[in-house]
Design a protein around this nucleic acid. Structure first.
Lengths: 205, 205
DNA sequence: TTTAGTACTGTATATTTGTTCAGGTATTTA
DNA sequence: TAAATACCTGAACAAATATACAGTACTAAA
């Protein structure tokens, strides 16, 4: 892992490999790389790959078709570094400050089905769920008393804290200015879609 | 796309392909699949792959090494369906209810570097940022007046709304019970790490 | 009972693919 | 100026790989 600087040509080859893998979900062959850059010899590719391997950004699997793997640091482009305490003088993103790399796919990974829902309105503001947020929901048909869940009432999905009292369902907003909504399942078409397990906010003001 | 049901063996092969691709970032070869299941003939693999292709869950790229691609629906395992209005009677996750598939990697995609930070305490509660949340931060050395940012003060990272007044930096909590923190950059080692662009909450109570 | 599909083995073959050897020119480094 | 490095061509070769053909056995549907 010399971490030497890449030349322009080497950097172009690496970019191509990354883009190819992103799109096709597999590494390119030597021929495909040569074609892309108009190389008339596969050996041009071999040289570049050897250089990239020497500089530690890829690893070749000898003899194997499409045997190119991006080394860890190249992958981390897709991972978000989670920073802990920040040592003096050291750049924020220095390895020493990083606790782990967040793989956003895995943050909400579950065996069961999950889905997401756009939140409209401010009814859950005291629970930290704001207008425009996306809630991540684990699909399940029941809720425990007091859990935040998604309830479908006549084709409309609502996020509320849910209580059960006899045959009534109480939907309690987390907002002092709003009142409970009481639903009688016998009267209105109504069912529980799932439990809110996460929140994603894309635009922080 | 017949969407016929897979047999147990076919399902096993598909699972292996998915796991292999997850781990190695490339599709397996026929030999590797045969080895995994103890098949003594590559033709067993070919038959299974043809069946999987007929049933629409993979696509083969004829003649190409590792020429297996998972069809779209198989990928959606990694994507979170974003549900809009929910039509009556229809299951929540029916295609008709789904607006788009969220690719969490892309939700926070930017050209510039981003990192994440665990939030401790309730100082930003009115901005919908709660204790235990993860804030996603775009690395940048400046902030506009009133933006929520991450400021490092003597090795401690804090999330606050940031104002500038003369040579002072004012860190304003979004919590009525807390007071502004005023920092004189000349006296304390202090710098801006970035702007908060997103929030992720993993455990909703 | 026939037909179709599943699930394998075994052999053979053509193509794909990585790799090596032998050059060449230009550019940078010592 | 010499030596190293980057960057390319061209040809040849061996290994990796997909795929076709010929079977066997079992199961489920028509």
């Amino acid at each position: 892992m010399e971490k030497k600087k890449l030349t322009k040509a080497q950097s172009n080859v690496l970019d191509f490999i990354e883009a190819y893998m992103e799109k096709k979900k597999m590494p390119p062959t030597y021929d495909e790389i040569a074609d892309n850059f108009g190389f008339k010899s596969k050996n041009s590719v071999e040289s570049h790959l050897q250089a990239l391997e020497r500089k530690g950004v890829i690893k070749k699997i000898a003899g194997k078709a499409r045997g190119i793997t991006l080394s860890e640091s190249a992958y981390k482009k897709n991972l978000i570094p989670l920073v802990g305490t920040v040592a003096a003088g050291m750049p924020v993103l220095a390895e020493e400050n990083i606790i782990e790399y967040l793989d956003l796919y895995k943050v909400f990974y579950t065996d069961v089905e999950i889905f997401a829902l756009n939140v409209k309105g401010e009814s859950m503001i005291k629970a930290g769920i704001m207008d425009g947020d996306i809630v991540v929901v684990r699909k399940q048909p029941v809720l425990r008393d007091g859990e935040i869940g998604v309830v479908i009432i006549e084709n409309e999905a609502t996020v509320k804290r849910v209580y059960f009292k006899g045959d009534k369902i109480i939907l309690r907003p987390e907002n002092d200015r709003m009142k409970d909504i009481i639903v009688f399942p016998e009267e209105k078409q109504c069912f529980i879609a799932g439990k809110v397990i996460g929140v994603i906010r894309k635009d922080v003001q």
